[in-house]
């Protein structure tokens, strides 16, 4: 039995050796699937997610001419978010049975998975310029390869990368991050530190929330908190999470720019004026 989160106060170190405001190692790639419209792969610590975006493509909706009165989306297992007069965003999450320790298969109709899907879809609907694609569908398909905390945040970030790759215009990077608190709900510890980017063990033991913002601003696009936490600690946690989102945005931006620079170097695209100005 290794140490648990209660040892934080001994030396202000978390269970994996981070400080309260450290992000985990973040590694990502875009355009991992050449055949897809947009694709990405993202690791936040040991949470690993793959994302494929198809579209924007013509909506599979029957009788679409009337607009808005159509039936359900093509796949019943995906969660969709519609924008007024804009594209429909359909998110599907597939969780590998091998992604958790106990190899439990989560079905696609599982309530938790559906909630994650809906969360991602709604957050994306607010960030994408979907009105440019009326009567069409943007399908975001996410595959969870490994889980170690901050899953929702990782899903959001991976979708953002894939959508950038697909060339769907958006206001800013939609980034998300978790924040927790070093002591439990009932402990009443006044001096509890907020924690950034929780791993799986911390998520199990501590209260936490997931916060998504548009870029490095304080514009909150997503806020999910399923654990009990004192109201007094909420503000600190949100501030830390928003700060973390800023760092994640920088990291995602770096990934996109590196890929772009590489593509220009390899001659995959001509170094045009519009692209070339701030690459490299």
């Amino acid at each position: 039995m290794p140490l648990d989160t209660s040892t934080y106060n001994l030396a202000l170190l978390r269970v994996d050796g981070r400080r309260w405001n450290d992000l985990r190692r973040l590694h990502g790639q875009i355009r991992t699937q050449a055949a897809a419209d947009g694709s990405s792969y993202l690791e936040m610590g040991n949470t690993k997610v793959m994302c494929v975006v198809t579209g924007p493509s013509e909506s599979a909706r029957r009788g679409g001419a009337g607009g808005g009165a159509g039936g359900p989306a093509a796949s019943s297992s995906s969660s969709t978010a519609t924008t007024p007069n804009g594209a429909e965003i359909a998110v599907t999450i597939v969780t590998g049975g091998f992604s958790t320790v106990d190899r439990k298969k989560r079905s696609r109709t599982d309530k938790r998975v559906q909630e994650l899907q809906a969360g991602v879809a709604k957050a994306l609907a607010g960030a994408l310029h979907a009105h440019l694609y009326p009567r069409s569908t943007i399908a975001v398909s996410l595959h969870v390869l490994s889980q170690d905390g901050s899953l929702l945040a990782c899903l959001v970030n991976a979708s953002t990368l894939a959508l950038v790759d697909a060339g769907v215009p958006m206001t800013d990077y939609l980034v998300a991050c978790t924040a927790g608190s070093t002591s439990g709900h009932g402990a009443g510890d006044e001096g509890a530190d907020p924690l950034l980017d929780l791993n799986g063990q911390e998520e199990q033991e501590l209260p936490f929330l997931t916060l998504g913002t548009l870029g490095a601003t304080d514009r909150v696009a997503l806020l999910v908190c399923e654990s009990r936490v004192q109201v007094g600690r909420l503000e600190g946690m949100m501030a830390v999470a928003a700060d973390g989102c800023g760092h994640i945005r920088a990291a995602l931006d770096r990934i996109v720019r590196d890929k772009g620079a590489q593509m220009v170097r390899e001659g995959a695209i001509a170094k045009g004026e519009s692209i070339g100005m701030d690459l490299d």
């Binding site: 050796g17 985990r24 610590g45 320790v101």
Partner: peptide, 15 residues
């Protein structure tokens, strides 16, 4: 059941 657990460890020099 036997489970294999993988945890990250971040090594630092400011301890």
């Amino acid at each position: 059941k036997v489970q294999k657990i993988v945890r990250e460890v971040y090594l630092r020099q400011d301890i």
